[in-house]
Write a protein that binds this DNA or RNA. Sequence first.
DNA 1: CATGAATGAGGATTCATTCAT
DNA 2: TATGAATGAATCCTCATTCAT
Lengths: 217, 217, 217, 217
Amino acid sequence: MAKPNPDPIQQQLIAARRNQILDAATQVFADKGFARATIRDVATTAGIADGTIYNYFENKTALLLGLLNRLNESDLRQGHFAQSAELDIADFVQGYVQHRLEQFGPDELQLLQVVLSEVLINRELRDLYYQQVLAPTFALAEQYFEQWSMEGKIVSANPRMAPRMFAGMVLGVLILRLMGDRYLEIHWGDVPQALAAQALSGLMPPEGDYDATDDQA
Amino acid sequence: MAKPNPDPIQQQLIAARRNQILDAATQVFADKGFARATIRDVATTAGIADGTIYNYFENKTALLLGLLNRLNESDLRQGHFAQSAELDIADFVQGYVQHRLEQFGPDELQLLQVVLSEVLINRELRDLYYQQVLAPTFALAEQYFEQWSMEGKIVSANPRMAPRMFAGMVLGVLILRLMGDRYLEIHWGDVPQALAAQALSGLMPPEGDYDATDDQA
Amino acid sequence: MAKPNPDPIQQQLIAARRNQILDAATQVFADKGFARATIRDVATTAGIADGTIYNYFENKTALLLGLLNRLNESDLRQGHFAQSAELDIADFVQGYVQHRLEQFGPDELQLLQVVLSEVLINRELRDLYYQQVLAPTFALAEQYFEQWSMEGKIVSANPRMAPRMFAGMVLGVLILRLMGDRYLEIHWGDVPQALAAQALSGLMPPEGDYDATDDQA
Amino acid sequence: MAKPNPDPIQQQLIAARRNQILDAATQVFADKGFARATIRDVATTAGIADGTIYNYFENKTALLLGLLNRLNESDLRQGHFAQSAELDIADFVQGYVQHRLEQFGPDELQLLQVVLSEVLINRELRDLYYQQVLAPTFALAEQYFEQWSMEGKIVSANPRMAPRMFAGMVLGVLILRLMGDRYLEIHWGDVPQALAAQALSGLMPPEGDYDATDDQA
DNA sequence: CATGAATGAGGATTCATTCAT
DNA sequence: TATGAATGAATCCTCATTCAT
């Protein structure tokens, strides 16, 4: 109530402990799901006592929000959209997808797994996730698509639908992988390029002087 | 467990009661998630007593399996892939996507929501779902893609990757809708065509004589 | 939510079970105090399972409120004040005190013990108790004292202070007994008369030169 | 436990800290009750760290005993009984009651509240309190009443019952005030005299055969 | 001495499941 | 078959207490 604890070392210790706990929570929740996982599971995995968790998180739900925030930050950390709207679109999309998927290492996949599972059945969390992650992403993407569309760089008819299909594609493939598809797991390295190609094929105008525009129009 | 009860009327009554319970379970699980939902919730929603559920389902988990089967049947019911591999591919894809998405009315969306949420964090269920639903679908699709590819009808380099990206796209857009995206909700009617177009653009060979195979390699 | 359960037999069973639980709660709470007593203590004492208590009481606090109500009813059950304001005052006071104290058998003493202990440190319960028990009692008593005072039947100067000192006397002696005073415990039978005499002596006008020592003997 | 620390300044510091803690404990316990109050509550109120309390008190129960002792000392501090048994009884009683009640400022009321609440449900504490406070008081009082009675100064037949009724009266009125009676709170200044008068009326012999009935009637 | 993070035993409460009616 | 009261295992969370700093 009084001391905002400006001690930077304390701050770091606290942050470290919180991360330690969230790491454990990610593992445990991904394995058993949020509801079936017990605080004891998390504590044991983190190598601490049950009660200690409550020195760092209000309650079990706060752990989930902590994971949501992690996913959030992980998403924001690669806000490459803003970076380069002037690049060649093909390069941009390719780079973006590549980046986006590379971001999902094993840890982030687990994060997504946990959060997604809960988001699907928890309205509160869903709203939070949508407002914090999806809505801003779509809003930004719509701007770019609109601009590109106006500049004639892409032919996609609908600048609001396109980002959703694009995002859906990425999300869907991630989920198929999470659902245990062996092929995707093994060939995960090929996925970015394939995704980018698929996305681009729907966006790009036919290249060059051949007259095949009618296959889209 | 003892009497096989061959009475057809009894059978129907039992099936009806089971459906009544599964309907309630779908609603309740979709609202609160499987773990947070209680048997009492389901019973109350179904308008019966708690104990009655146990006359029709072994335990709570059996309800979930019941829902998985429903989703299964719902999937199989439209096994249109087999039907018409000789159609024009564009028509076929369009028809397939259309069918596939139309199948997901509000009830099926809830089913998907529940099952997906659990599948993400329940290895057992995940394996079941994968083996019962995804694997057969992919296996079949791979055959067709291979055939089409060999016949030169499509240019997609990889007949194993393509169905996964295709399925991912459909699944991803469904999930975005489940996550509360207003645009998709409102323009749900436009989604099938957009999806089909996007999918086709990546599959169809350029209709001109330019060599576009390299955008996949 | 739907059935108000008008079944009278059910009602009786429910009431009986509630009483069984409240009986146990009285004992346990009186022995260890509300906070130190566990639900398991109560359940064990009542000879039922822990969870069963929650079929009859919302939570632990509701048990306390149940006891408060019991004390309430026990108080109201002997609303003899109203009955006979026209009696000879001496008879009336004597009768009242007698009645009041006789009402406190072992069970009621325990009730008082528990409720009083909590009332002293629980504002909410205190307000409830004051409004439900004390305030009405005082309000009624004040009327009588006022009337008697106007009729010249008593000399007590203050019709608002008098009932409080009267009630305080009764309450105080009860508490001294609860605190383990052996003398009061052994001579509890003499208390009503002594109390009545003490009370009357402060109320009654001196009756001239009669020898009043014997009303103590 | 090892060094008796004869340093008088240290002693004072320790005493001061103990008092600081007991002050906090009084407030907190009065507000939430002993069991519901946490060591952290007390520490925070005292403006110190949790652990520090354990440098001055063995455990939480020791805090309660500390408060009991305080009440004890507060009681003993005004051992006026001994002082003046030869005064006029009326003066003495009046003085005693006055003193007794004036002793209960807000702090002492809180003390009483806490201790009383616990004493009612804690046999150990109850015995302690009875033996340390009530029993000696009664023993002393009984002597005086006996003496007065033998000297004919009072008519109360029973020198053992009388002090208990007397003490009960005082205690009871204090408790009614603690229970939130507004009238007593506001007119607390009038209470001593009223109490004394009530007490005296039961003790004093009729003032001879004077005929003063008409001044009331 | 003072601090407050860590501990883990303990307790209120929930809920899947059983079974007598 | 339907019911719903009873059960008690399981779990979240609190908090007195310890102890390294």
